[in-house]
Design a protein around this nucleic acid. Structure first.
Lengths: 168, 168
DNA sequence: ATGGATAATTGCAATATGCAAGCATATTGC
DNA sequence: GCAATATGCTTGCATATTGCAATTATCCAT
């Protein structure tokens, strides 16, 4: 009556599933940094990302910021609000089109950024210290490919994945 | 009066910083899967992770589950509650020590797991399809090393990172 | 027995998030 | 010109999530 294996048991092992492994690594790495900028500056994750964006591209508008750090417009707006409250950024109406507000980093914003970035680089250095040079290079290029493919996957939604045979 | 570079500008580029890149890849990959199990079964992320754990280690207790999928006891408890409500798991008091409740997956829980796992494996396959065999092997071992080091980093907290020169 | 430990849960306050509606500015059609 | 529409961004509010104190139930040592 019963087949030998009554349940197919597709046996996906969470701990061996690449997306989950990446997620865990990213989460564990991010935590001490978040604790640092949270406790030290009262900065949220969105706030930190936006600070990093305007540190690099001073005067960016909200849309550019959102694109650069994968935040929706609401999160960007609130994050900028937080930075302004903390004195880390200022909003000024755009010169040509005043709907676009240019967000600029302040002196103390850059000071905070530099301290956070220093810790961030320490973390990255410690991570990479475990890898050989060849591994580092390969990891870099592999992550680049994963970025490209994950963007496609993320854009399609799950419905498109079900109709997908995996070959492309 | 002013030095040529008034601000040191440690220039950490978010888009080139490995932890951020990993985070983005993980987040983009996870989204369609989350949408799927959220819309289809009303499952939260914690619920899904716990389901995956008990699919593999049926009858695990809450502490084991928490350790296996990096969730704090509160999240585990609530996640199990969700699974029980959905009819995907049952709690039964432990036989030897009744403080530990053994959580078992139900038939319909396993059915749901199998459907989610199938999509998960599709995603993983699509991701890895872009990589050569050698790259896949290298990525696997590199991620293993990152897991080990990120666990150390996560455990230490940010204070220990500041006193750290990066060599160990 | 009983005091203290441990595993797990619950309640509640704080926080974050999603989304509709709003405001200001720019552009288009007439 | 100037109403009508579009765009960029913000705000308010309802809902979900999270963190943590307090609680319950059980076990263990004396």
């Amino acid at each position: 009556m019963r087949p030998p294996a009554p349940v197919p048991d597709d046996d996906l092992k969470l701990s061996a599933w690449l997306p989950y492994r990446l997620f865990l690594v990213a989460a564990q790495i991010a935590r001490p940094l978040e604790d640092f900028y949270g406790e030290t500056f009262g900065l949220s994750q969105a706030g930190w990302r936006i600070l990093a964006v305007i540190a690099e591209r001073n005067g960016a508008n909200a849309s550019e910021i959102g694109r650069a750090c994968a935040l929706d417009p609401f999160a960007v707006s609130r994050g900028i609000g937080q930075l302004v409250e903390l004195g880390f950024a200022v909003r000024r109406p755009g010169r040509i089109d005043r709907r676009y507000a240019a967000v600029s980093i302040t002196r103390s914003g850059r000071a905070a950024f530099n301290r956070i970035a220093a810790l961030g680089r320490t973390i990255e250095t410690r991570l990479l210290a475990r890898l050989a040079d060849a591994e580092r290079a390969m990891l870099d290029s592999a992550v680049g490919k994963l970025e490209a493919e994950s963007a496609r996957i993320g854009a399609g939604g799950w419905r498109s994945l079900l109709e997908d045979d995996g070959s492309s």
